[in-house]
Simulated scan of single mutants.
Amino acid sequence: MSIATARTAGNDTTILSRSGSRPKRHYGTHIFLVAMAVMWLVPLGWALFTALRPVASTNEHGYFSVAGDFNFDNFVQAWTQGGFATYFWNSVIITVPAVLLTLFLASLMAFAVSRVNWKFNITLLIMFTAGNLLPPQVLAAPLFEMAKHLEVPYSFSDSGNLLNTYIVVIAIHVAFQMGFCTFVLSNYMKALSPDLTEAALVDGAGIWRQYREIIMPLCRPAFAALGTLEVIFIYNDYFWPLLFIQSGNRLPITTAINNLQGQFLSNYNLLAAGAVITVIPTLVIYLLLQRQFVAGLTLGSSKG
């Protein structure tokens, strides 16, 4: 065999091996993901489309048409008529402390059960995880009675108890969200190398310093992912504020849509505008933390 023939055969073999190592195209997976994305986006797109149309155009041409005018009048009317500025501020007062307290307390518990060897770490982790299996609404009646009969100074609450206060709603959210956050953070912390804290311990770092200066900075992707999820969960909650807060000017933004309901007729274009307004804050938070959110979800996916 000549040298030229050998080179040609070698090149053909290289090309064949390269072509054989091409990744397979998963058309079925792509089609499924596109279909799921469309299913999720169609309701949001339809709500935005309805919110941009005046009710007169909808009544004249019908919902399934593109004829008529398009403007932002429904958004302006929903914001003013529904009192969204006040309700949005109420949501901020409830959501921000609840998320910060949940992440802080869950990080302490996760550090204790994952990075510290003691007798009841696994037992406590199981208890926190098992608490997520109980539907929170089952405890609605006893929690309401507890808040009703727990007396507090009138300087703290105008009702003399915990009802009609932001504190009780924040406490409920923290209590029910801590189990999920503890479970996620403990698994995240277990994936960190034990050499980090062992080396710090040799250098004389105590438990609090290990937690504050070593573990917490490494958990930023997990905090970003959990923070995004917790903001969405707590911000969108409708049940607990409606149960514990009886004063209309203290309710969160999820209940403001009720102010857009007519006594005899409902303007669905106006309701759609109000629903779109309530979605905007969570969408902005997700877009701002998107990179950290994805990094927190995919961490460890390449380990094997």
Rank of each mutant, 00 (worst) to 15 (best):
residue 209 R to W: 14
residue 218 L to F: 04
residue 191 A to W: 01
residue 191 A to E: 10
residue 203 D to S: 06
residue 235 Y to M: 02
residue 250 R to S: 11
residue 190 K to N: 15
residue 246 Q to G: 14
residue 226 L to S: 03
residue 183 F to C: 01
residue 245 I to H: 13
residue 216 M to S: 06
residue 200 A to M: 10
residue 250 R to Y: 11
residue 214 I to D: 09
residue 241 P to E: 03
residue 218 L to A: 09
residue 243 L to M: 09
residue 235 Y to C: 00
residue 204 G to T: 01
residue 227 G to L: 04
residue 186 S to D: 05
residue 189 M to S: 06
residue 232 I to S: 04
residue 260 L to C: 08
residue 260 L to E: 05
residue 247 S to E: 02
residue 217 P to R: 00
residue 240 W to Y: 14
residue 223 F to R: 09
residue 259 N to L: 09
residue 249 N to C: 03
residue 185 L to E: 00
residue 216 M to P: 01
residue 256 A to E: 07
residue 195 D to K: 15
residue 209 R to A: 15
residue 192 L to T: 02
residue 246 Q to C: 07
residue 240 W to D: 05
residue 245 I to W: 14
residue 205 A to D: 12
residue 181 C to A: 15
residue 184 V to E: 06
residue 235 Y to V: 00
residue 233 F to Q: 04
residue 204 G to D: 02
residue 223 F to P: 07
residue 254 T to H: 03
residue 241 P to A: 06
residue 209 R to G: 12
residue 215 I to E: 05
residue 242 L to A: 12
residue 251 L to N: 06
residue 234 I to R: 06
residue 234 I to W: 06
residue 202 V to G: 05
residue 231 V to C: 08
residue 212 R to S: 11
residue 249 N to P: 03
residue 237 D to Q: 07
residue 230 E to N: 13
residue 201 L to S: 15
residue 180 F to M: 08
residue 234 I to P: 04
residue 209 R to F: 15
residue 180 F to T: 04
residue 208 W to K: 10
residue 222 A to C: 14
residue 198 E to C: 11
residue 209 R to M: 14
residue 212 R to W: 12
residue 191 A to F: 04
residue 249 N to F: 12
residue 220 R to M: 13
residue 241 P to L: 02
residue 243 L to E: 01
residue 227 G to R: 09
residue 204 G to W: 02
residue 190 K to E: 14
residue 214 I to C: 12
residue 248 G to K: 15
residue 236 N to S: 14
residue 252 P to H: 12
residue 244 F to G: 04
residue 260 L to N: 06
residue 195 D to H: 11
residue 252 P to E: 10
residue 189 M to P: 08
residue 243 L to N: 03
